[in-house]
Design a protein around this nucleic acid. Structure first.
Lengths: 129, 129
DNA sequence: ATGTGTGCAAACAGTTTGCAAGCTT
DNA sequence: AAGCTTGCAAACTGTTTGCACACAT
């Protein structure tokens, strides 16, 4: 018989990570997903988390969210163009819809603009209490 | 006699760093300033650079420039509100004047907006050749 | 049965800190 | 002379990699 293991295997740890992202309605850091996923798989190693995050990004399932001075967060891929709000109190990251017009006009002439990141920061509604 | 060393001392290494920032017309990373300053002080240690950067920020001489997924850059403080362009080819960071209107309107209700960072990315004029 | 995925530990890169010696005041 | 500043090395944090074993297929 000819065996072909072309597809990713369905492991408890990856399923736990997947569920964590599905439940959370915001981008999660490696540490945050790890904490959430360990509720299902206590022995989950941090290396496994990083390996899966990287794999899930490559497969197009997740998208890395890079923030100034912060470790990357990850969110389900496929969403429309949007930005993020970073709460300096709880360090949580939240999605922000919309995008200000006129961003493209800012690039200096001669520079090839490929994209932009906009990060709002302050205090989220829960912490602002 | 009563001695008081309240002011920072004028050391060759700090002067070299200061000059490096003065010459460069763009934000510099710790590695970049180190390379530039070593032309004047070859034995310059990386720890000294980090210590001085931190001190110069505290004294209000420099301002940290945080970019998504990148090590901090530093630029002379006191400039008007502006943003930055990150060249993915040479990793250089350049100042961008202006700021799109409507940024404030993006914050979700209930969130206290304290500021924002906007980073354009693509290829700079020199690399775009 | 096969070989990918996991967990642990070691390896890495970037930044910070401890300490003896040097240099500025 | 006094003590801040430096350079080197060790400590740290966050992320990646090596390896033997476990487990999904």
């Amino acid at each position: 018989v000819s065996y072909h293991y072309l597809v990713e295997r369905r492991t408890r740890q990856r399923e736990a990570l997947r569920r964590a992202f599905a439940r959370a309605d915001r981008p999660l850091s490696p540490q945050e997903v790890t904490a959430l996923a360990r509720r299902e798989v206590p022995a989950l190693g941090i290396a496994t988390v990083y390996r899966n995050l990287k794999a899930m990004v490559k497969e197009g399932e997740l998208r890395p969210v890079e923030l100034p001075g912060q470790p990357d967060r990850y969110e389900p891929a496929g969403k429309a163009h949007h930005h993020h709000f970073h709460c300096r109190r709880c360090d949580g990251v939240f999605e922000v819809d919309g995008c200000p017009a006129g961003v493209k006009a800012l690039a200096p002439r001669g520079f090839r603009l490929e994209g932009h990141d906009l990060t709002l920061f302050g205090v989220c509604n829960r912490c602002a209490r």
